[in-house]
Nucleic acid binder design. Structure first.
Lengths: 122, 122
DNA sequence: ATAATATTCTACCGATCGGTTGAATGATAA
DNA sequence: TTATCATTCAACCGATCGGTAGAATATTAT
């Protein structure tokens, strides 16, 4: 699969993979699935056993995580073994960090300006 | 508004605010709105002028960002001025960072174990 | 060969989403 | 007062979402 080089300074806006990653981790069940997978590889069945929803529900969540690139599937016989793929998280973190720092710096500067202009503020 | 103390070591799973933040930034239009707001306060109209969707569409996106706590609204007369609120991003970043580091360490350890066991690997 | 197991596929449900349109509200300007 | 402007509200649309149930597929066990 041809993968776009992600080592750019300013993150672009329209990256479907980034959309998918954020959408994937927006669901608490999927975050819990990722946390469960942090303990090591699991097949779909034993993973599903840890959640209060149906097997098929978990299977669908896994597919969402897979499309986001956060989970990799290794089929061996009739069992599908799932393992984490943290690479996309790195990009997602980078985007967040980039903007968070930028915004906080901007807002801090603005507040400093206001303080300097009209005195301190509770 | 009573706000939960968010200075805990291990991020919990069911935090609706976190869900809302990730869901909010999963949409590229909303990320672009945040980026536009990084340039300073804007009212809904001038913000909407920068996007190829309807005024009402932008207004709805702003409401989503507001419910996620990422945007604050200050009504002055008939204009609503919007400004960034980066605090929720800090929590969102913290969660991502926490898990990313944990997972990468785990997977690196696993890979090292495999390499040590059965020799090098392409 | 037959049965049990692990999993996906298909179809459905109600809820939410992104988006539009048109009407309503409220503040300013003439 | 009467327009005009900035904005939300309410209703709608088709698409997607989280979830369930049941059928289909393939692998393993008897």
């Amino acid at each position: 699969m041809p993968r776009r080089d992600s080592s750019q300074a300013a993150p672009r806006a329209h990256r479907p993979q980034l959309n998918r990653v954020y959408a994937a981790i927006a669901d608490p069940t999927r975050r819990a699935i990722l946390a469960a997978l942090a303990g090591g590889e699991l097949n779909v069945g034993s993973l599903a056993g840890r959640f209060p929803i149906s097997f098929n529900g978990v299977s669908k969540h896994v597919k969402v995580l897979e499309r986001a690139g956060l989970v990799r599937r290794r089929v061996r016989g009739r069992e599908h073994w799932l393992r984490l793929r943290p690479e996309p998280l790195r990009e997602a973190t980078r985007w967040l960090e980039h903007y968070r720092e930028f915004w906080e710096a901007r807002l801090d500067a603005l507040e400093a300006l206001l303080v300097g202009t009209r005195g301190r503020r509770p």
